[in-house]
Design a protein around this nucleic acid. Structure first.
Lengths: 340, 340
DNA sequence: GACTGGCACTCGTTACAGTCGAGTGCCAGG
DNA sequence: CCTGGCACTCGACTGTAACGAGTGCCAGTC
């Protein structure tokens, strides 16, 4: 396809103007605001080509041009220049995250920070259990036939679960069980626990066998099967910025999608290490989000990825800015986690 | 004020019709749909009085009448008949809540259930720590100078916190600390802990004194001061039902309010035992929510109130239905908690 | 060959006038 | 006290016209 440098410059100018003004941009306004060095007529010819190639389109015959999803894609891939964060923003990130007292706190602060900086909806996944290790498993007697099982992961995440035992157990038994379980599981990656749990049951002393079997079931459920992912969300009010123009007038599908953990996880949770993923409009697999874009990345200490985070907004968003912000926040949170 | 029975019946009819049709209701339509036994002209006279008293108003001169906040208030206080839940709804409640495995699960299921049944935004407060007792405090060594403090409340709520110690401690010391702390605090109501924590420090053996002091600080922070309340939210997509007519076209203020935990707590957290509170429009203390109504109630095992739950929607909502649903769900959750 | 100025054309937006009808307030009579 | 009748109000809708931003195309220029 014959897209010379000037045509690309025109596309870039259109995207930038449209993102900031939210109005279809015409040839005249374009040459006035950017130093393209050519006349409106020439720009019009370029626009005709860009439209033919599917990068921009006209909402109405007598209106200016608007980028298509494909246009944004080209812009993101080849035209946008990295936008370094302002010192003020860097300071905001530090100030906001310093002083977090536990993992919950870190995640909540992060998601609010992202929402505030990007003025979009922010999503942060808790460190995935699948990629964590067991630091400690605690058994707390609640009654003679009930235990509270508390699992502490190396990421600081804590999961708990009430266990109904088949019969009463003594305090000493609980101590034994606790020791056996920790000897076997402490330090193991969660994804590797199933065979270990199996071994626990087999190696348990006969009198503890039934109790251990019950515990094993719950352990497997808690560690592997059940709701292993958690998510924090913030900034939904930002969806209403830009009036009703974005999202073609209805927030409904977006809000519905945001209530589905599964959807959010797919959006931000499957990022490869150290890359930033951008999903634009209908590149998204969910129909509800065909009018939205997502910028996401993974985070974690060093090169390990423990979870994802990102922002969601209208396709008409400031991609370079949001990409830079998401990256910076993710890196900072990674460093923070590495300290623990 | 001279509101005879018929005028009240007219008001009730107006509220019911407006809630279901979402359109201003006129005198003619009213007599057609309700057996009032009088002519439209008479109804018009009644309406004039109701308007004068501030219970209804006309959006435009040539339009029908719409209830005011004051009108809804009168309706809720004196005119609405209790709407018993349908068997289907009762079954839905049971089916939805049965099988919850821990507190998190109960709360999440509850909030989703409420949102689904009322088709409004649902809010559920986690059992308040202030009103809970300590069941057990666990200390888990992370490194020689770091402990994870885990607090398990009798409601099943679990809070954790990382503690940096002033110096290294031995495993035996940790055992001692754990025993001392639990001897003193287990079973105590959280609101009564501060003096007990103080005593812990004073009575600690000299060699454990510095460590205990650090722990005490964190304990007080975790148990009493910090973020002691948690909240779950669901059904925000329901805000978009009824097009843009409710909330005068902008969801913004509502969404903003919903992001503030403090606001939500004020809305649903201050309910007196066993009553259902209804806040209508500007009765609400938050400007952002002057177009919304809230139906809330407390819940807990037996007569104790551990937290609040409720729904939020447009002032034009089905008050009797929502009140009945919120009550039923709260009662059911209370019973569920009593079993633990 | 690439760019430019000019021009006719399209079509959404806005303004204005006119009609329609739902709903009202008021009044005289039962 | 209720009712039927009637004049009135005013928002919603329709049709027409003027406007203007923006376009595509073409002939002319460098």
């Amino acid at each position: 396809m014959g897209l010379d440098d000037r045509k690309l410059a025109v596309l870039r100018a259109i995207v930038e103007d449209y993102v900031s003004t939210q109005e279809p941009v015409g040839s005249k306004a374009l040459v006035e605001r950017h130093q393209l060095g050519v006349s409106p007529a020439t720009v019009r010819n370029d626009m005709a080509v860009l439209e033919e190639e599917g990068y921009i389109r006209q909402p109405h015959t007598s209106a200016g041009r608007v980028p298509t999803d494909r246009g944004y894609r080209l812009f993101v891939d080849r035209l946008s220049r990295v936008k370094p964060l302002s010192p003020a923003e860097r300071r905001a990130i530090e100030r906001f995250l310093v002083g977090a007292v536990d993992l919950d706190d870190v995640v909540h602060r992060t998601v609010r920070l992202l929402a505030q900086l990007t003025r979009q909806v922010a999503v942060v996944q808790y460190p995935s259990l699948a990629r964590s290790s067991v630091r400690h498993l605690e058994l707390v007697p609640i009654s003679t036939t009930r235990l509270m099982l508390v699992m502490i992961a190396d990421t600081g995440r804590v999961e708990q679960r009430l266990v109904e035992l088949p019969g009463p157990v003594l305090a000493d038994d609980v101590t034994d069980l606790r020791r056996l379980i920790n000897e076997k599981l402490a330090g193991a990656r969660l994804s590797e626990t199933p065979p270990l749990v199996q071994a626990l049951v087999e190696e348990a002393p006969t009198d503890l066998r039934p109790t251990m079997t019950t515990l094993a079931t719950v352990l497997l459920e808690t560690l592997v099967e059940r709701h292993e992912e958690r998510i924090a969300l913030a900034g939904t009010a930002n969806l209403t910025r830009g009036g009703l123009l974005d999202f073609q007038g209805s927030l409904r599908p977006i809000l519905e999608a945001l209530e589905e953990e599964v959807v959010l996880l797919k959006l931000i949770g499957e990022t490869e290490p150290s890359t930033t993923r951008v999903l634009i409009g209908d590149e998204n697999e969910f129909d509800n989000l065909r009018a939205a874009s997502v910028v996401s990345t993974g985070y974690g200490p060093g090169a390990t990825i423990l979870g994802g985070m990102g922002v969601l907004g209208p396709t008409r968003m400031d991609y370079p800015g949001n990409i830079a912000t998401v990256r910076a926040v993710a890196r900072y949170v990674g460093e923070l986690l590495a300290q623990n």
